[in-house]
Simulated scan of single mutants.
Amino acid sequence: MRFSKYLIVATLTTVFLSGCSFFEYIIYRPDINQGNYMTETETSKLQVGQTKQQVLYIMGTPMLKSAFGDNVWYYVLRENPHHGHVNQTTYTLTFNNSDVLIDIKSDTLPHN
């Protein structure tokens, strides 16, 4: 009888000391998306040779512009699902001096 009391106390102590990690998947966490919301449809419309106005129409306002001029635009989408890994996609668009798109680069960060 005495052993069962210690077993119950030890079990309850373990549950309480584990904190919220025991209930982690029961607790609701919203998806957190930050940056430029980009879909596959929008990014597939990007083509070398488009003007800045055309890119603005397709993608919207860039998240960042180059500090050394207005010829490099960065579109960043960071997705943090409620119980998953963080995903980050970055599009780097480079324009020439005539405001024509000359390069499109896409980078995806690996999962943390």
Results as ranks from 00 to 15, higher is better:
C20F: 01
T94C: 00
K65Q: 15
T90Y: 09
Q88R: 15
L64T: 03
L77F: 14
F95V: 08
I104L: 06
G84L: 01
Y91F: 14
T41P: 00
M38K: 07
K45H: 04
L93E: 09
Y57Q: 15
K5Y: 14
F23V: 08
H111P: 07
K5F: 14
S21H: 02
V9S: 14
Y57W: 11
S21D: 09
K52S: 09
R29H: 13
L56V: 12
V55Q: 02
V76S: 07
M38D: 04
G60Q: 02
D70A: 11
H83S: 03
R78S: 03
H85D: 15
N112S: 00
T41E: 03
N87Q: 07
Q34P: 05
S21A: 06
F22A: 10
V9G: 12
K105Q: 10
Y75N: 05
T51C: 07
Q53K: 15
E79P: 00
N96M: 10
T108G: 13
V9M: 06
Y75L: 09
H82R: 09
S66M: 01
T94R: 01
P81T: 04
G35I: 07
M59Q: 12
T89E: 09
S21T: 02
E40Q: 02
L17K: 05
D103R: 08
Q50N: 10
I104F: 05
T39Q: 00
G49D: 03
